[in-house]
Design a protein around this nucleic acid. Structure first.
Length: 983
DNA sequence: GCAAGGTC
């Protein structure tokens, strides 16, 4: 490192945010001779002071950016949604630029950098920080290539760290920055491609009747938001597929002068009713209890670890029902006003150098928790304990803690008060002794069966005194000694049912994301909010999340395709790759290429399987009759570059009349088009490239023809090329015509060269034979086996061109030719009306409306068995259950779902219990087995979660199926409530 | 009109 030297050098220091610039400048200058002036940006001031770095006198200029200085986006040509096939976004050029709102910061950097010799980067010490560092370097180097660039590494904004850091400057780490470049590019390409794809595919195809303006509806996909949605849907499905099961347990209680002890059966509960009854009968017949074990134990309840962002969000949600997004807003306010430390931190352990004592001292005068703080500082109280960390450290920020005392500010909302209180109490708890409890466990034996009861007495509350959000429940039980005998006050056989897990709470969701590495501490709340903004999920009053129909349909669609795009694995894989890049074990270009290649293949596959998405949507939404509602019309598959305009791609389209064409995306400026045979029922662009045709690549198309509309000697499946080399395709075009654009139409209007031409070479090779049936003796024109449709084609004049080497495809209408068609409807080609008012559009949308309506809303409804809201009869459209009718409760908060064909079963109530519970069980079981398609999502048999909620069914006197009271034999009640039973 | 990541 340069040192010594006579004169002073100018050093430009740049921090990631204004607060850090201010703090570091304050520490380095020791607030001596520190001057501040405005920069171009009102938030990013410039601090100036003198400093000496390893003997070199420096005039320090300290300014900041605000996070990333640059953004990436596609080049202009690809930015419009219809400018290209979304698949092109996997290789479309990307540019990195400083957005408009950051230009003033850029200007400040440029102005200052010009006059400096050194650049010292004080960005946060994580990968993103390193990437921002290089953005700053790029900006400054552009105006001063002689800058000596240094990186300051620091882990906390405290004197010792900062002074040490500036004396041990290092070079910035390109590998760390590379890892972020990889992430940015992958996120952009995947996000934009899938978002455009699914939005264009689904938005207009269905009536998605949310409050918002449908035209602005964006069905976004993102590598973080989708797995987050996946967690919500998965839990929702788990609940739906839960099969309640009845279980039995024996409970015993004993009341004495000292109180009540409730003993629970050490077998837990049994699912075998007969077995439970037999054991119960044994206990009742020999009900004397003998105490077999008494154990006294001291138990500790530890205070929480120091607070990081995720923990703050989870606790604010749990204690105050604040959303994570709102929590972060309030925390940001408190941080900006200096009351709490930086709220975006992963760190949950304090540095040994933090002045914990000083932080407690500040809180001594608070009217509520002040006395506790005083006790903490009193060595005689013995309350202090050095905090233990949770093992996370971002090496950039300390755990969230109070930085300034406040007894409440006038401008604070209730949430500001609450959050500040949480931060303070949490901090005080962290430096406190754990709570101490004395636990007693008593075990008894009744007729060979073991039961246990426990009680707890809190000896010292310690941290619980200040951390009012936590409690340590416990009850006192009477004293027992080993060998003591007593008669239970009550001995009952109780029944309960297993229950599904609850919907995910916000804290649960944050937990899932944290574990799976979805998002960062600073962005997790954004992803959750995005799901709500996109109408993918809703949050109920208990801050629990469930998917909307839209969210569920999207996940279901991808799941039915067999993809786990909604699972966290993709992100985990990316995280691994990024780590490898940052460590230098993988190269940036290599990771980018591999990942994008895989994702593109996945994307193309998803496009091929788009029917699955449509099917899943059709379960929940009605088909729309909007013109763009035909998904075939809005999702384009790239076939080849356009040889006419040489700007856009030619894409496969299906017109509203069902016929296929390959047209230039540059329409209407470029009208290059290839009409395809009218006998095609399906056409899908593959990834195979034709090795003959130019300009390439020309992707081959997998066609399926309608058997009855093509000659018998042609296969219904054909992998074809529209570039001009494909003989079969041209034959079929000639034979079948192109629907409304058949040759008779063309020639009738005197359009010159027909769109559908027969290749002379091909015709020559089959001279003398009918092109239709292949037999000689007649031409295809007079072939008797042909349909009326093809006969109309035969009258057309054919423009014979040689097959190969003709440049643009033989079946191409070029732009020059199209010019002559100006004034004709772009849809059907006829004159006299525009495409807006073309009657064939209307016909098409009507047919969709009448035939494609799977969701027969309002056709029939029954009151919900669970909540009494109406249940609407709908028709499923999934692969496994197409056409099957089901009832689904309209209420968003009710999970009732029942197949219509299984309703009979539901009338059989089990064990004489109320029909309601039986119905819900049956409904759930049906939904699990069929809707989840047996992919192992629903739990089978008894492996799932069982909660121990016990219902005293028998206490109501209901007989359990097939049994009668063993005391008096009466089938109308059970033994434990038998009036004839002695104690 | 797309993502996720910084931050004001």
């Amino acid at each position: 490192m340069a040192g010594g030297g006579g004169g002073s050098i100018r050093v430009l220091n740049v921090a990631e945010k204004p607060s850090v610039a201010k703090a570091v400048a304050g520490i380095l200058s020791r607030n001596q001779g520190l001057r501040v002036r405005e920069g171009r940006s009102r938030y990013n001031k410039i601090f100036e002071f003198e400093y000496t770095i390893r003997g070199q006198r420096c005039h320090m200029l300290f300014t900041s950016v605000t996070g990333h200085l640059m953004e990436i986006d596609f080049e202009d040509r690809y930015r419009k949604w219809h400018s290209c096939d979304p698949a092109d976004l996997y290789h479309a050029p990307i540019r990195k630029y400083v957005p408009q709102d950051k230009l003033d910061i850029k200007k400040t950097l440029e102005e200052e950098a010009r006059r400096c010799q050194w650049l010292v980067l004080w960005l946060d010490c994580d990968r993103e920080g390193e990437n921002i560092a290089f953005e700053v370097v790029e900006t400054c180097n552009a105006v001063n290539q002689y800058l000596n660039v240094w990186r300051a590494r620091f882990s906390a904004l405290i004197d010792r760290d900062i002074h040490e850091s500036v004396q041990t400057l290092v070079r910035p780490n390109q590998l760390f920055a590379d890892a972020v470049d990889v992430r940015q590019e992958i996120d952009l390409r995947i996000g934009a491609s899938f978002t455009r794809f699914q939005t264009m595919l689904l938005k207009d195809a269905f009536t998605i009747d949310f409050a918002t303006d449908e035209r602005n509806l964006v069905l976004s996909y993102g590598p973080c938001q989708f797995p987050t949605l996946g967690f919500i849907v998965e839990r929702y499905w788990e609940i739906q597929s839960h099969e309640p099961e009845q279980f039995w347990t024996i409970n015993c209680s004993h009341t004495s002068d000292e109180g009540i002890a409730t003993f629970s059966w050490m077998r837990g509960h049994l699912f075998d009713h007969t077995c439970a009854v037999i054991i119960y009968e044994m206990c009742v017949l020999d009900s004397t209890a003998t105490v077999t074990k008494v154990r006294h134990q001291e138990k500790l309840k530890y205070p929480p670890h120091p607070l990081n962002t995720i923990e703050l969000e989870k606790r604010a949600s749990r204690y105050f029902r604040m959303s994570s997004e709102h929590t972060m807003k309030v925390a940001e306010d408190l941080y900006q006003a200096g009351f709490i430390s930086y709220p975006r931190t992963e760190t949950d352990c304090f540095s040994a150098r933090t002045d914990l004592n000083g932080i407690v001292q500040e809180q001594q005068s608070h009217p509520v928790w002040g006395p506790y703080a005083q006790r903490l500082l009193d060595p005689e109280a013995g309350l202090w304990r050095n905090p233990t960390g949770g093992g996370h450290n971002d090496n950039a920020h300390p755990p969230i803690h109070p930085t300034k005392f406040s007894a409440g500010e006038s401008g604070w909302s209730q949430d500001h008060h609450r959050l500040y209180e949480l931060v303070v109490r949490h901090f005080l708890a962290c430096v406190s002794q754990p709570a101490i409890g004395a636990e007693t466990t008593v075990e008894i034996d009744i007729a060979g069966e073991s039961f246990s009861a426990s009680g707890r007495v809190i000896i010292a509350k310690n941290y619980l005194d200040v951390y009012r959000f936590e409690s340590w429940g416990g009850s006192v039980i009477p004293t027992y000694v080993v060998g003591q005998q007593f008669n239970p006050t009550a001995l009952t056989l109780d029944s309960g049912v297993t229950r599904p897990p609850p919907l995910l709470s916000e804290a649960d969701l944050l937990n899932c994301m944290d574990k799976a590495g979805i998002g960062t501490d600073a962005t997790m709340h954004d992803h959750i909010k995005k799901l709500l903004d996109r109408f993918y999920a809703i949050k109920d009053q208990n801050t629990r999340f469930s998917p909307t129909n839209l969210g569920e349909a999207l996940v279901m669609g991808y799941d039915d395709m067999g993809y786990e795009l909604w699972k966290p694995y993709l992100r985990s894989m990316m995280e691994c790759d990024m780590k490898a890049v940052s460590l230098g074990s993988k190269r940036k270009a290599e990771v980018l290429e591999t990942c994008l290649q895989q994702m593109k293949a996945c994307f193309l596959d998803a496009k091929l399987n788009k029917a699955k998405l449509l099917e899943a949507m059709a379960i929940f939404f009605e088909r729309s009759n909007r013109p763009g509602g035909d998904e075939q019309n809005v999702v384009f598959d790239n076939v080849r570059p356009c040889g006419v305009c040489q700007e856009s791609n030619m894409v496969l389209k299906r017109k509203p009349d069902g016929n296929f064409m390959v047209g230039c995306m540059g329409f209407p400026q470029c009208r290059n088009v290839v009409w395809l045979p009218g006998s095609i029922s399906e056409a899908v662009v593959t990834t195979q490239v034709c090795s003959f045709c130019n300009p390439g690549p020309v992707y081959k198309i997998q066609f399926k023809f309608r058997r009855l509309e093509i000659p018998p000697d042609y296969s219904v499946d054909h992998l074809g090329c529209i570039g001009g080399c494909d003989v079969i395709l041209r034959q079929l075009t000639e034979i079948c015509g192109t629907g409304s654009h058949n040759l008779s139409n063309m020639s009738a209007r005197g359009q010159g060269p027909a769109a559908t031409t027969i290749n002379s070479q091909r015709t020559t090779s089959r001279q003398g034979a009918c092109a239709h049936c292949g037999q000689t003796g007649h031409s295809s024109n007079s072939c008797s086996s042909w349909t009326t449709r093809s006969q109309s084609i035969q009258s057309s004049g054919t423009n014979l061109q040689s097959a190969r080497g003709q440049g643009p495809a033989a079946t191409t209408i070029n732009s020059q030719r199209t010019t002559s068609r100006q004034g004709a409807c772009a849809h059907c080609g006829q004159t006299g009306h525009s495409s807006n008012s073309c009657s064939s559009w209307t016909t098409c949308s009507q047919s969709i409306q009448s035939s494609g309506t799977n969701l027969q809303s309002g056709e029939s409804s029954i009151p919900c068995n669970l909540c009494q809201e109406p249940c609407i009869l709908r028709t499923a459209n999934t692969t496994n259950n197409r056409g099957r009718k089901f009832y689904k409760c309209q209420s968003q908060e009710c999970n009732f779902f029942m197949w219509e064909d299984s309703m009979g079963d539901n009338n059989i109530s089990r064990g004489g219990r109320s029909a309601t519970r039986a119905n819900s069980r049956s409904a759930n079981s049906n939904s699990s087995s069929s809707r989840r398609g047996g992919r192992g999502r629903g739990r089978g048999g008894r492996s799932g979660s069982r909660t121990t909620e016990v219902r005293f069914v028998s206490a109501t006197g209901e007989p359990i199926s097939g049994r009668s009271c063993f005391v008096c034999g009466d089938p109308s009640h059970f033994a434990n409530v038998c009036p004839n039973r002695g104690t």
